[in-house]
Structures are given as C-alpha cells and as structure tokens.
Design a protein around this nucleic acid. Structure first.
Lengths: 211, 211, 211, 211
DNA sequence: CATGAATGAGGTTTCATTCAT
DNA sequence: TATGAATGAAACCTCATTCAT
C-alpha cells in the first residue's frame, strides 16, 4: 500500500504509518456510518480514541483522511486481487476467471460499506486525488482483462471487447454493494455470484458450431 | 409529478407547483456542480434567482430540496420509461427490449450528472425519504422485468432470473454515467449500447438445439 | 474616505457603509486595548454589539477589519490635514507651517492609541494592503513638504532637504504617541509642540548675515 | 547581559546562559521574519535546532522568549553605546556628540529589523516587563543627555531642553529603521546621518551675537 | 537532561434558518 | 407575500505547553 502525501510533523516513519493506519481504520468505520460531511472531527477523534491535535499530527485535514480512507481501500483491494490472480493457473482460463470473480464479489460483499462509501464520497476529493483513486480501479480492470485476453488467445474464450467485459464484471461486483437495497430483496450472495459467473462463462464460450 | 407539502398555507396551488419545479430545476444544476453539502443556500437562492425567504416558502429545508431534486428526477425517469414502454409491441419482445434499452441508456447518457448525483447524495436523505426514492427504481425495474417475462412466456426468451437480468440492465445503464471516467476512455455511447444490447439478446436467445 | 475592497453579501451600499464604519469604530476601540492578535472575534462582535455572522456580512475576515481600521484612520488623518492645509495662507509660510504642525501634533495627541496601534499592527497586513496604508502617510508628507517648498521659493525659508524635514516633523508628531511612556515623564503637550515648532522655525530661518 | 531565571534547577550556569543566548539569537531571526504571534513554537524550535522540551527548559514560555529577545537587544545596545561613550573626550562635546550619533544611527541601521520588531511587539509583554525594556532606552537617553549637558556647561552648546533633544536624536535614529519604507525612497544612510548631525550641531551652536 | 507525541481549549469562519420590515 | 440582514451554534483546525520515555 502506498504512503500518503500528507502533512506530518513526526519523523518516526514507523510510528507515523502505524498511527495513520489506525486513523484510517477507525475513520472508515465512522465515515461509513454517517457519511463524510456528516461526520465531524469530534466524532473522528472519538472513533480514533485520540485528541484532535494527535489526529492532525498525522493528517493535514479532514479531507486528507478521506483521501487516505478511500485510497487505502482501493489499494488494498487491488493488491489483494493482483496477488490472488498471480496464484491462478493461466492454462485454465475458465476456472481461473470463475475463481477471480468469486474473490472479487466476495471482497465487495465483505466490504459493502466501503464500496458504497467510495461511490458516494470520491466526489469530495480534489481532482488529482480522485485520479489517484481511479488507478486502483484500473489495476483491477487490467487483471480481469488479462484473463479474458489469455482465454481468447488460448482459444478457450471468444471475447470481442475484453475491456468492456472486464468493466461489466467489476460493475456487477460493485452492484452487490451499491444496490443492495434492491438485490438483497431477491437474492442471496451465492445465487448472485453463481448466476453471473454462469452467464458470463456461457457468453464467453466459443460456439462449437462456429468452428 | 407531485407537489411537495409546504408549511405555509397557500391558495394558489398551481403557483406553488410552478415555483417548486423552478427551484428543483435550478437547484439540480447547482447541486450537480458542487455536491449537496458543498452547495450552500446562498448559491441555491442565486441559482433560483429568489430570496432565501422565498425558497423557504416553498421548501421547508435544504434537505427537502435535495429530496425533491432526487425524487423528481426518479419520477420523471420512471414516467418517461413507463410511458415509452406502453407504446411498444409486446408481441415482439426482442425488438421491444432493444428499444427500451436504448431509451434507458439514452436517458442516463443525457442525464449523467443527475444519475451520478443520485448515487452520491441519496445517502444524505433520511431513511424514509430514501425508500421513497427507491420506488421509482422499482417501477423501472418492473417495466424491464415485464418485457423479459413477456418474452419468456411467449417462448422467445429463455430467462431464468428476470429480476436479476432487469437489474443488470439498469446497472449497466447507470454505469455509463457513474463510471464515465473509465468507460469514456475506451468507448462511445453507441458502441456501449450496441454491445450490451447484442450480448443481452444473445444470452436471452432460446438455443434451438435445446428445443 | 475610500470604501474597502471587502467581501460583502449585501447590496444596499448605504447600509454596508454605515455598518462597516460602525464595525471600524468599535473594533478600533477593541483593538487598541489588547492588540490585534490578542483580540478575538468574540470580543470584536461584543464591541460591535453584533453577532459573528453579521460582522462577517460586512467584512471577509478579521484581517480585513484590521486593514479597514488602519486604513480608515490614515485616510481620515490625511483628509483632515489636507482640508486644513487648504485654508492656510500660503503667503505666510511660517505662520502656516506652525498652524499645520499644531493640527498634526494635536491629531496624534488626540489619537495616540491609534497612532501607536498603526505602528504596531501594520505588520500583520499583507504587503499590498500595507502599501495602501503608506499612501496616506505620503499624502500628509506631501502637504508638509509643500509648505516648506513654498516658503523656500518665497524666500522666507532656507531648506535644503524639504522631504527630510517634512518627514522629521511627522516622526516627531508620531513620537508624542509612540514614545509617550518617555515623553510624558518630562513634558506636557504644549511644551512639546511649542519647543519643536520654535526649533524648526528657527532652523528654517534665513540667516540675515548670509544675504 | 543577564541570565534569565528558569524554573528547573541547573548546576551549570554557564551552559544555561549559553543556551539562552543561543535561543535568543535564533528566535530573534525567526521573530523578525513573521512577527511574534505569527511565529509558533515549532518554528522557534526549528530555528534553534532544539526540541520543544529543551527550549522550555531554558525559558518558561513563548512570552519569556519575547521578553528575552527584546530586552537582550535593548541591553546590548545600551551597553554598546555606554561603553563607546566612555571612550569619548568630554572636552570636545561637538565632536563627541557627532561620534555618538554615528554609532547610534549605525546601530539602528545594522539592526533595523530588531528596532522595528521592538516597536511592534513590546506591546505583547506584560506591563512590568515592558517597563524593564524601557530602562535600556532610558540609559541611552541619559548618555546622550549627558553629552548635551556637558556641552552646555562647558559653554559650547546652547540647549534649553536637553532631555527633549536627546529624545529627538534617538527617535530619528529609530526612524531610519521604523520608517525605512519612506526614507529609503529618498535618502541613503550617510546622507540621512550627515544631514541630521549637521542640523543638530547647528541648532546647538551658541550664537555669537547673543553673547 | 533531552525528546517530541499528545493534549484540548480556543481560534476564526460558515451556514441553514428566521423574522422584522 | 417577499426580502435579505441577522442569528449563533457548530464546523475545522492550531498551538503553547506538558510529561512519559
């Protein structure tokens, strides 16, 4: 995970990192409950069990904390999926893609609040911070696209727009978090995942008759 | 569209409705530029070319304006799609669905800012208002689901989870607005629409060999 | 007196001016008591008998109030002296200069606190504001210099460095305010003024023997 | 120069004095750049290359440092001028006074920032500290006055208000620092000094015809 | 004796909302 | 009815000072 370009007064890098991660962890909880603008510094400090001064020792502003929270979540997700992807057998693209989808969907199931929060609050970041955030998304997008291309090149998949398919997979994983109020009414997680995995693999299937 | 209940007694309901719609229109513009929390009443009043007192004559609070903005956008969308759907020939589900998708995607292309805004700011509404908002979504969901079921019943489609497919269609329409920073890099609107329409219709196709 | 380039929300110019002058008047009193940094907004508001919001309706920041206070004092002084100077008979430079010195010294006697305050707090203004402030000083400097040159041209004075003499006169007028802790120990105002007037006029005297 | 009383018991008085002078020296630099209130302890510590704890070991508060800075500058000036005055030949008051003026004006030319700073920030000291500061001024005042009286008694000068003349000399020396924004526009240091020296000596001259 | 992380009161400023005109 | 000046609570953030290490 990256370190954040924040205003810190301390030089003990290990301490800084530890405290920053602590603040990120606790603030995330506070933020997802009430949203960024509705959470005031007093609540953040309380959640962190730190004084205002201490929090401002490690972050320059409330906005910097927001950036750290969102960016950290993005990086962690990207690292996690990249790392998992590297364990997959590229010779079996179908199976690999299914595994990857499970991990991806599970992530957003386990981190529903953060996913939703990211969609809602990224707007409150300045443009350049926002673009930093998008990078993690692009990394994940590339990983998925990679498997699609792999499968296409090995002849197992037929996929014309791998970028679009990769995007749709991500979007549907996110949907489980950001549209839960609708989806939860009708589906449980396993059904949601299984159905989409099946539909996707089916649509990627090379039609025999075409050969 | 509804007239929003106001605190002050007013004789001229038509005037009230007109003024409210004016405020909704202008506030929407102001809100999508900077977000709900970042837009203050002064800016709203300026955008509306009205005094604070006047605005508060037609809405009880800033939050009520937010609710009106989001809810109004939702209702308009639902009305528009329901009305369009009613013109479609149910005997040709494939063609009808394609037409509906185009209208749906076009709506979110034309109203990108509002779609994104809705995702971001619905959180700032109280629970019951939020649920009101979801209603419009459900109406649209039903319309789409209706065509899928129609197609299934007529034997043209094979669709196991019409609710899920309907949801995915909506989600992908929204994606064009809420993920534009990614999608716009690679696709134009027509490609995005065409590809998804094709993939969907294909996946709904009754496989002949199965018969 | 100039109007200040401040952030105001109101458009009723007369009201704005009236309220600004009220705030300037009351803030001056508050500032000279404890100094700029030691006077907080709560005290300023109390002195103005206004709420914080109201004060910020007419000034954009505490610093803008400081600027207005200092700049207003400077302008008033310059206007007052210019106006008085214009009543003086240029044909009697000696008498005119003496009158002008009295008015100048009296001003700083009557406004000791403000004179001292100006020396102390001008530093807290941004560079360009500071330069605006210096303008009033220059106007007064010019007025005094004018009489010296007049006297020289009419042959009544012998003055080699009118700019320097004009400056010294101002400085000694200010001294009565900014060094009162020392001067008051030994002199009263009239003595201070009379002695300096006499010394100056003497030193400007054309020595007969030289002719 | 004095050692400032500190709260902690310290065995090594020499070390204490050395550290205090170090802090005074570095803080002076920091203070004159941004002013007392605008310079925070972090900046002071950085300028001193010491930790906050260390600085607080040698001074009880930020205000005490301010006092030390101003008071130290005053003492140094007084000591310097007293010491220089003691080398002057009292039998030649005219020459002596001219020499003393040069040293005085040069001091304030060399320490412009500190002179200005003293005028600006003495206000931030408590009353009794302020009076301590004035003492140095009085010492210098006495030295100058002494030469004037000497000259009067020896019959070389005619001076009716030696206290006032002494004060004016000091004020004009300070003016070079505190009014530099105006004076520097028109004069260089040597002209400023020479003109004032000449004018003064002239005005002190015993008029022969009077005898 | 030195460090510098931590404290938390208090600073300036904003803003939704009201109400006298 | 319409206005917009006024309110004042509460927001974010800073900073002199302390004290455990």
């Amino acid at each position: 995970m990256t370190t954040f370009p924040i205003r810190t007064f301390s030089k003990d890098e290990a301490l800084v990192k530890e405290r920053q991660e602590h603040i990120i962890r606790r603030s995330t909880k506070a933020f997802v409950k009430k949203g960024f603008s509705q959470t005031n510094m007093r609540e953040i400090c309380k959640a962190c069990e730190m004084s205002a001064g201490a929090v401002y020792h490690y972050f320059g502003s409330k906005e910097e904390i927001l950036y750290a929270v969102i960016s950290s979540a993005g990086s962690k997700q990207a690292e996690y999926l990249e790392s998992f992807a590297s364990t997959l057998d590229k010779k079996e693209p179908g199976r690999a893609l299914a595994s990857l989808m499970r991990k991806l969907f599970e992530w957003h199931n386990d981190n529903q609040d953060v996913t939703l929060f990211t969609y809602q609050e990224t707007r409150n970041l300045p443009r350049d911070a926002r673009e930093q955030i998008f990078e993690s998304e692009c990394r994940i997008h590339s990983v998925i696209e990679g498997f699609l291309i792999e499968g296409a090149e090995s002849g197992e998949f037929r996929v014309e727009e791998p970028k679009l398919v990769a995007h749709d997979i991500m979007m549907l994983a996110h949907a489980w978090a950001i549209r839960r109020w609708l989806l939860r009414k009708y589906f449980d997680f396993e059904t949601y995942l299984a159905t989409h995995t099946a539909v996707l693999l089916k649509s990627l299937q090379r039609v025999e008759a075409e050969g």
